[in-house]
Simulated scan of single mutants.
Amino acid sequence: MENEFGNLLKQLREQKGLTINQLADAAGISNSQISRMENGVRGVPKATTIRKLAEALNTSYGDLMIAAGYLEGADDLNESVAEQSPEWATSKDKRDFKKMLEEDGELMFDGIPLDQEDKQRIKDVLTGLFWEAKQMNKRKKNNNGTPDGK
C-alpha cells in the first residue's frame, strides 16, 4: 500500500496506451511530476491534481482519491462529511450546498457569475481542504493519542 496511488496511476496510464508525456499534456501537469508520482518519489498529490488526472484518464475521481488515501470508500466519505460538518448544518443544508455547486443555475461570487469550471474548482478546493484537514486530524490523534492532544 506504500505507493498505491502511483501504482494505480501507472496501471491506468498504460491501460489507456498513454506515455507519461501524453498524460502530462492531457492533464496539464508536468511529465516529471507524473513520473515522480508513479515511482513513489512524490507524495500524494492535491485533490485538484487528482481531478486533472482523472479527467485525462477518463477514470473515476473517487477511485483515485481512495488510492491517494483521502478516502476509504463511499460509506467512509458520507460518514466523514457528516461528522466534520458544523453542528448547525442539517442534512438539508449539506444537500443544498452540494446541489448549488452541481446545478446549472446561476451562482455568483462577489457579484461575478460562476461558470461550470469555476464551480468545479470550488468543489475541488473544498474537497482538497477537507481531506487535508482530515489527514492532519489523523496525525494529531496518532501523535497524541487523543483528538485534542490533551
Rank of each mutant, 00 (worst) to 15 (best):
D25I: 09
D25L: 12
A26M: 08
A26T: 04
A27S: 05
A27Y: 00
A27C: 00
G28H: 05
I29D: 07
S30F: 08
S30K: 07
S32F: 11
Q33P: 05
Q33D: 10
Q33M: 13
I34F: 06
I34M: 05
I34P: 01
I34H: 02
I34V: 05
S35N: 12
S35V: 09
M37C: 01
E38I: 03
E38F: 02
E38P: 03
N39R: 14
N39F: 10
G40T: 06
V41C: 10
R42K: 08
G43F: 15
V44C: 13
V44F: 11
V44T: 13
P45R: 13
P45K: 12
P45W: 15
K46A: 06
K46Y: 09
A47C: 15
A47Y: 15
A47L: 13
T48V: 10
T49H: 13
T49M: 14
I50C: 05
I50H: 08
R51P: 01
R51T: 01
K52H: 05
A54F: 01
E55S: 10
E55K: 13
A56Q: 02
A56H: 05
L57E: 00
L57F: 01
L57I: 03
L57H: 01
N58I: 11
N58S: 10
N58R: 04
N58D: 15
N58P: 10
N58T: 07
N58L: 12
N58E: 15
T59H: 01
S60W: 01
S60I: 04
Y61F: 11
Y61V: 02
Y61R: 04
Y61Q: 03
G62Q: 01
D63W: 11
L64S: 05
L64F: 08
L64E: 02
M65E: 04
M65L: 14
I66M: 11
